[in-house]
Design a protein around this nucleic acid. Structure first.
Length: 99
DNA sequence: CGGCTGGCGTCGT
DNA sequence: TACGACGCCAGCC
């Protein structure tokens, strides 16, 4: 199974209302420094909606990018109970999901 | 706090 | 088959 498949599968383990970082996700699939790669994979996400790529954020606390628009991503997270202000996640550590 | 560089698989040339 | 560019970052300076 290739990396991207693993990534999508791992991402399915992230429950609603929780978030994870690109770096953690990378490690979860066996990559030490593949944050950037994760981004590319998410960008080519072949299973939109099925794969909750909007629950993946940057380790800095910012929401990061989104293929369909950061605004949309922000709104989706907001609907799941994650408060965001100025593209910044308020309760980052609190809602952070560990694999 | 802003900017630059590092590290990695996939895809296109 | 081989090589370089790319992408929803992370971390150090």
């Amino acid at each position: 199974m290739n990396i991207e498949q693993k990534v999508y599968k791992k991402l399915l383990d992230v429950p609603k209302g929780k978030i994870t970082t690109y770096g953690d996700l990378a490690k979860a699939v066996g990559l030490k420094n593949g944050q950037r790669l994760i981004g590319k994979i998410m960008n080519k996400n072949p299973y939109p909606v099925l794969v909750p790529c909007h629950r993946v954020v940057m380790s800095t606390g910012k929401i990061g990018g989104y293929a369909y628009g950061e605004i949309v991503k922000m709104k989706m997270l907001s609907d799941e109970g994650i408060e965001i202000t100025n593209g910044k996640i308020e309760s980052f550590d609190k809602n952070l999901f560990k694999f």
